[in-house]
Nucleic acid binder design. Structure first.
Length: 315
DNA sequence: CGCGAGGACGTCCTTGTGTG
DNA sequence: CACACAAGGACGTCCTCGCG
């Protein structure tokens, strides 16, 4: 097992960002325990930051040296510098997201590598929220890639090479037909046909088209991974669930839902889409509609997995 | 010929029904 | 009441078909 050595200590000036929320949402127990999180800054040549909810951090790398660029990357991953003023302004009185935005204004999306973002997207296909995250959990557990961060063993997502050389584990992870798509994605990365650092310079529209060339990656998956990996929010990943909800809340046809959403949220459309899943605890459609009717538009911590408390269940 | 609508597909979860 | 099992629901992508 690779041993990572500490290279930079520091404290994040969090401003209005709530690191608890930011680390908790859509996370696993092995990466967040309620007070400290591990943020993977490089999942190929492993670089991992250990971050406390108060902002103290240590960055670890193989060599024990690392450029201060990694501090930027950590802050970027946690959305520290992201100015959401306009997003809040747009959403403050929104019938769907208003309450969430008022109560959870400290939340920031936690970004991932494009590689892992695509896997997240594929696992959400044709699956309920918990089903998809269980697949991701299984993938990480089965490939069991670990590094030593200080004294702690930390799991990392498998690399594209791990997956290309052992496709069978994907099937065991309960990914079903998605195994083929994940394998296709892995091959694309392993063959260097996809490069996050190159793509980042393109527009969302062009990135989406590029990603859709991979068989099994459609519009939803491409857009979700653009949101997660690039913090570009202008193209919203809208699934059946959100389409129905939009049509209900804003009284538009299913067909016009996406147009309506983009008109309302503009360049924040993708972030708003993700926020909606958190606000409604990613409940299946029928339950989500009930929640909207009862005006329960902020997360409720029941004893069941939700985006916000997932880390308490999948450890 | 290009485009969009809509069906097929596939997997696991939830809900409902029946059994002991 | 506990459990097993069946049926239906939740979903995104791909492909076909028919329309303009």
């Amino acid at each position: 097992m690779d041993k990572l050595k500490p290279c930079i200590h520091g404290k994040i000036d969090t401003g209005e960002v709530d690191l608890y929320l930011t680390l908790a949402v859509y996370n696993f127990g092995f990466w967040f325990n309620g007070v400290r999180g591990f943020v993977i800054l490089d999942d190929m040549d492993p670089v991992v930051a250990e971050v406390s909810t108060s902002g103290d951090y240590t960055i670890y790398s193989l060599s024990g040296n690392c450029s201060s660029e990694y501090i930027n990357r950590l802050e970027w991953s946690l959305g520290i510098q992201e100015d959401l003023t306009m997003f809040y302004k747009l959403g403050m009185d929104d019938p769907l997201l208003g309450e969430f935005i008022r109560k959870y204004y400290g939340w920031r999306l936690r970004s991932t590598s494009l590689w892992w973002a695509l896997i997240i997207g594929v696992c959400q296909q044709n699956a309920s929220f918990i089903q998809g995250w269980r697949m991701l959990y299984n993938i990480i557990r089965l490939y069991n890639r670990k590094v030593l961060v200080g004294k702690a063993e930390v799991l990392l997502p498998p690399t594209p090479y791990d997956i290309v050389s052992n496709k069978a584990l994907l099937i065991n992870a309960g990914t079903g037909y998605r195994a083929n798509t994940i394998y296709n994605v892995a091959k694309t990365f392993a063959n260097k046909e996809l490069d996050q650092d190159v793509l980042v310079k393109s527009s969302s529209i062009d990135i989406e088209e590029e990603l859709k060339r991979i068989k099994g990656i459609g519009s939803y998956t491409a857009r979700l991974s653009i949101v997660l990996a690039f913090r570009k929010y202008d193209l919203p990943p809208i699934d059946r669930w959100l389409r129905k909800i939009i049509s209900l809340v804003y009284k538009v046809s299913l067909k016009d839902s996406e147009k309506m959403w983009m008109r309302k949220w503009g360049k924040w459309s993708g972030l708003a889409a993700l926020a909606t899943t958190i606000a409604l605890d990613a409940k299946p459609l029928s339950k989500a509609i009930e929640r909207i009717k009862n005006r329960q538009l902020a997360p409720i911590d029941e004893n069941k997995p939700t985006p916000l408390n997932l880390w308490k269940f999948l450890k």
